[in-house]
Amino acid sequence: MESTAGRLTRKTAIISGAGSGIGAATAELFAREGASVVVTDKDGSSAASTAERIREEGGVAEPFTADVSDEAAVIELVAFTAQRFGGIDIVQNYASNRSLVPFDVAIAEADLSVWVQQLSVDLLGCVLTAKHALPHMVRAGSGSIVNVSSLGAWLSFESRPAYTTSKAAVIGLSKSLATEYGKQGIRCNVIAPGHIVSAGTENMYSDEQTEVMLDHVSAPRLGRPDDVALAALFLASPESSFINGQVIVVDGGMSAYAPMVPSFRRLAEAT
């Protein structure tokens, strides 16, 4: 992954869900760009692994084990970051409760606890990190928050209603944060990835389903964690200083066309 080193020099970033996948790719890229990164994950061993990779490359990183749905844990995370690095400039929220995938079924059939757990991590995790990081950003007069949503926020996949609802709510939350704190120099934006192939998603779909998704991407490949990390870098850097309350879609063009386009392509190939 190519980058221009130094875009985040002297910045401190909290990145949740950074033990693997998109969060880990983002943490590693931010460190290459000069940021001091607090690698946060509920799985402490995976957070430590990401931090160790960063250090091996000469970057600055500290692992921190935290469940972002637990306010006490988030308070400790923010306090640790501020004490260790002197402030908080960037918050990136990638944490998502993937353990609920088999249970996030049709609304009339799902247990309410599934909804509570999904919303607690994917939505309230964003609320809590923002709530406790914002005072540090307000004092500094600047800051960038990026929350991760999904194409599922506005395109139903006929599955995982609790997940898609939480990701739609993330967009509303982010626009509220951008409006409330923009005059104080703090920006909040959203990244909405399409299908991203990572260790956390490769077993979620069959080979046939993966082929269907590739058929619906206006690109020669499916997405990778680095694709999202590069968008996150732009939103965290001064280059996006006049972008606030926006949703950047990283989906290879999956949401750019009418649903019948892939079928028309196949018809044209058959003639």
Rank of each mutant, 00 (worst) to 15 (best):
D122Q: 07
A48Q: 06
S69E: 08
L151R: 10
E56P: 00
F157M: 11
I107Y: 07
S149Q: 08
I107C: 04
G143P: 09
E62D: 13
V127D: 00
A66M: 10
V116S: 06
G143L: 04
V38R: 03
S120P: 00
R84P: 05
A72D: 12
S120H: 00
F64K: 10
G86D: 06
Y94F: 15
A35P: 09
L128Q: 05
A133Y: 01
V127G: 01
S144C: 12
A153T: 09
P135Y: 03
M137I: 04
L128Y: 14
A79P: 02
D104K: 14
V101T: 10
Q83E: 15
G125H: 00
F64I: 12
V127A: 06
D67W: 07
A72G: 11
S45N: 07
T40R: 00
V68R: 02
Q83C: 10
V121Q: 00
W154T: 06
A47H: 02
T65K: 12
A130P: 01
V60H: 09
D41M: 04
N93I: 11
S69C: 07
E52G: 04
F103A: 15
D43W: 03
V38D: 08
D111C: 09
V91G: 04
S96W: 01
L100P: 03
V121P: 00
V148P: 02
Q117T: 05
G59E: 15
N147Y: 13
N97S: 09
G152R: 07
L77M: 15
S120C: 01
E71Q: 11
W115F: 15
K131Q: 08
Q92A: 12
V78G: 03
L77V: 05
A130D: 02
I75N: 02
L155C: 04
R84S: 14
R98M: 14
E52N: 14
S99N: 08
P63H: 05
G125Y: 00
L134Q: 04
A140K: 03
L123R: 03
V105E: 00
V60C: 13
A130K: 01
F80K: 07
S49C: 06
A72N: 08
S142Y: 11
E62S: 12
H132Y: 15
C126R: 01
F103C: 05
A61D: 12
